[in-house]
Amino acid sequence: MTKKIKVLRVITRLDLGGSAVHAALLAKLLDPSRYETHFICGSVNQLDEREIEEIRGACASFRVEPLLQREIEPLNDLRALFSLTRFMRRERFDIVHTHTSKAGFVGRAAARLARVPVVVHSTHGHVFYGYFGPLKSKLIVAAEKLAARVTDRVLCLAQSEIEDHLKLGVGARDLFEVHISGVPIEKFAKPAEPRERVRASLGVPPNAQAIAIAARLDPVKSVGHAVQAFALLYGFDPPPFLLIAGDGEEREKLEALARDLGVSDRVLFLGLRRDVPDILHASDAFLLTSLNEGYGKAIVEAMSAGLPVVATDVGGVSSLVKNGETGFLVPPGDPSAAADALGRILRDPALAKSMSQAALSAVSENMSVDAMVRRADEIYSALLKR
């Protein structure tokens, strides 16, 4: 019997965010006849018992290491490093695959100390700008340069992200490869509930237009700019609604902003939702106002639902949104430009229909979960043969 390839997956937070979903899908869907998957995370949030058990059931071992946290805490970080190193030495993994920045620093260092043959890191969008101040950002770049030296492959969500690393001197070009975060396209193409029923449940009138957002409510997603853009939309009868699916640290601040701008009755904070495909199909356009975005997985989800997209031109977003065809690209931090783009779509049914059809056509099998898993298998196999 052929020996299975032992893979350890390391991430700080296991939740409903894009990076965690990506890691969980790989854990669940890599061929179990070829791979023995192990999983370590710093915490588990937002998932229900069924979702946790699905991941646990797909893994040979599933472990929560509370010392592995996103915040920089030198003492705890060293303790996490030693804990991971001991575990890796004991289990003798063939591959360690880390996900996101902090797990990448600690996990890759531990893997090299434990002499793991293959070390892979998925960035899930870098944190070189949009997250921290200048000093902390410089320290992160310096740490990434060191970590790159002990990594066999760095996987980025888009080519633009690779270029950002290279401009800052992080690694050589042959270290990097694009590995997108796959979307269950069929799930987003077909809603579980009729549009009319979903809108009625949300309190959106049948003849009112709706704009959807699906995002964490944190500073880098800049949902405040989306609320400001929405408040600039005038002259619609009935007036449109903004549907925000997501939660986070800025929720109270954003709710206050909506009140201050006089649009709180039409900005609906829906919290974390597991029916995002239904929310998208109940909407007429999709808005993304991030200051930094590795890929824009939420954009692929929206396009799979046939929505025109207005998005900030950051990171890998321009690889998805074709300006003037599937939607509009606007500068980050410019609510007026976002409002103008939304207004063009909402006021022109022919343009909206054309963009909807172009969005559906632009979504390909290469963006699917199956393609993501298949490519991970190819990358692992190639690295093990070196």
Rank of each mutant, 00 (worst) to 15 (best):
R386A: 02
L113P: 08
G262Y: 08
R153E: 04
D377E: 15
D334H: 13
L202F: 07
R70Q: 05
V276C: 06
G246F: 02
P134I: 09
P349D: 01
V183M: 10
S33E: 15
L8I: 11
I379C: 10
A338R: 10
N76H: 10
P335T: 03
V150S: 09
R216H: 11
P332D: 11
A58T: 11
G315I: 01
L135D: 01
L243K: 06
T12S: 07
H281Q: 12
A371N: 03
R89Y: 01
H38E: 07
P219N: 11
V154P: 02
H225Y: 14
F128P: 06
K6S: 13
A27S: 15
R199L: 00
R108G: 04
D334Y: 08
L75I: 14
P277W: 08
L360R: 15
G125K: 07
A215D: 09
L291A: 06
R56G: 04
D334S: 14
A339K: 03
A229C: 12
C59D: 11
R90W: 10
F105Y: 14
L29N: 13
R86Y: 03
T289P: 09
L280M: 15
E36D: 13
M303S: 01
V21M: 10
A60T: 03
E51G: 07
F93M: 14
L287F: 04
A341I: 11
A143P: 05
L329A: 10
V154W: 03
R86T: 08
R274N: 12
A358K: 11
D260Y: 00
A338C: 11
D348N: 15
E249V: 14
E301Q: 14
L232E: 09
S61V: 06
D218V: 15
A172W: 06
P332W: 08
G171M: 10
C59I: 12
L202V: 03
R173T: 07
V276I: 14
G133W: 09
S19L: 08
G343V: 02
Q357S: 13
V300I: 15
V150F: 12
M1L: 12
Y131S: 05
R259Y: 02
Y234L: 09
E196S: 14
K4D: 01
K190E: 13
L47S: 04
D218L: 06
D340M: 09
G18C: 04
V10C: 01
P331N: 08
G262Q: 09
P205I: 06
V119N: 06
E255V: 13
A109M: 14
Q159S: 11
S222D: 15
L261P: 11
K167T: 11
T123D: 02
L155K: 03
P32R: 11
E293S: 01
K385V: 06
P74I: 05
L81Q: 05
